[in-house]
Structure formats: structure tokens, C-alpha cells
């Protein structure tokens, strides 16, 4: 399944990345995006980092999605 919401890179170890989604953390085991840094916001699909998103855009989108999920009684 594609996680089409941005998550924040909080840990990088060799080619493995820990991504924080707020309510949960998930690991990505490879990246097609190079030169990732801790603090970057990324999109993961099937444990692969496929895109990086500027922080301001990520936060804005997370707010939109969060509001939708609150209305639907779901966690982000």
C-alpha cells in the first residue's frame, strides 16, 4: 500500500530510514531519493522512499489530511 502522506525522517542508518508519522513510526529499507537528511519529509511506497517534500508543504498537507481524518474519526 502506498503511504501517500508525508513522514519525517528521524533516523538514518546505512540505507535504512526510520520515518515518523506522528501516530506511528515506519521503516523504509531503501530510497530512490539521494542525500536524505534527518528532518526531511518524505513519501514512502512499500518501504521505499520515493519522494521528498519541502517541509512547509508537508506540514500544510498533513494539517489538511489530519482535519479530514478528525472528521472521520481516524488518526493520522
Amino acid at each position: 500500500m502506498c503511504l501517500s502522506i508525508p513522514g519525517k525522517v528521524i533516523e538514518i542508518e546505512k540505507d535504512k530510514f526510520m520515518i515518523d508519522y506522528g501516530s506511528e513510526k515506519r521503516q523504509a529499507i531503501m530510497s530512490v531519493v539521494e542525500d536524505l537528511k534527518i528532518g526531511d519529509y518524505v513519501i514512502i511506497s512499500n518501504k521505499i522512499i520515493i519522494s521528498i517534500i519541502p517541509k512547509n508543504q508537508a506540514i500544510k498537507y498533513l494539517e489538511i489530511v489530519g482535519n479530514v481524518r478528525k472528521e472521520n474519526g481516524r488518526k493520522l
Binding site: S4, I29, I43, S51, Q57, Y61, I64
Partner: peptide, 25 residues
């Protein structure tokens, strides 16, 4: 409403397959 990167990911394209990764994970 979507970030630029997500918009770019959402685009349509066409491509010829040059290799197939059956990576196991």
C-alpha cells in the same frame, strides 16, 4: 491541496520496461 511532489508522483506517463526487479522484499 497537495504538495508539489505528490502532484508530480500522480502524473501519467508511458515507458518501456528495460528491467524487472523481483527483489524479494
Amino acid at each position: 491541496l497537495m504538495p508539489d511532489s505528490l502532484c508530480e508522483l500522480c502524473k501519467y506517463s508511458e515507458g518501456v520496461i528495460v528491467a524487472i526487479d523481483n527483489n524479494g522484499f
